[in-house]
Amino acid sequence: MSTAALYQEVDVCNVNTITQTRDSLITELYQSHNSWLMGWLCKKLGCSFDAADLMQDTFSRVLQKDDLSNIKEPRAYLTTIAHGLMVNHVRRRDIEAAYLDEIANLPQAEAPSPETINIMIETLTKIDEMLDGLPSKIRNAFLWFQLEGLTHAQIAERLSVSVSSVRQYIAKALLHCITMTS
């Protein structure tokens, strides 16, 4: 057997060991902590379908992680993931309620279709997530520019800042959004 082939053999072995360890890590994580996590989520959310869904989501996130061997505090690790998902969940619910409230008074002819409603809630949630953490001036400047189509000068006047500040705000907001989505 050539040396190269030998190396290859070793590599395959390694990969197998890693896969096996990974599977058993996940199994163990699930078996030891799933009911505890469910309890934790129930306490936070009420024992609704939401809690069960979020638990599944949490473990599916764990499945996507590359390296699981470094988890020292599994419960802290799981609650960190679950917490992130909860924040998004609450954000979506919040947006949904606000959006339904906004369209509730529209005449029937103008009422959006169920599909449109879904897409709008998705999109607005995504935008809200991207903008999270931006200072209000920058956030507003960006929203007015994107949604109301105001010119830089008009935004500058609304915010009582210079046009060059507005340009910086828009660039900053954009950079922030890109960082948040990637």
Binding site: Y99, T123, I127, R139, E148, I178
Partner: peptide, 28 residues
């Protein structure tokens, strides 16, 4: 492409409704 990815999210949104929803609990 990243810039376009973000900015295209806003295309076609109703400005009044969207701003009202996005500012729902956001006070400066």
């Amino acid at each position: 492409q990243q810039v376009e990815e973000v900015t295209k999210t806003f295309i076609g949104l109703n400005s009044k409704t969207s701003i009202a929803v996005l500012n729902r609990s956001y006070t400066p």
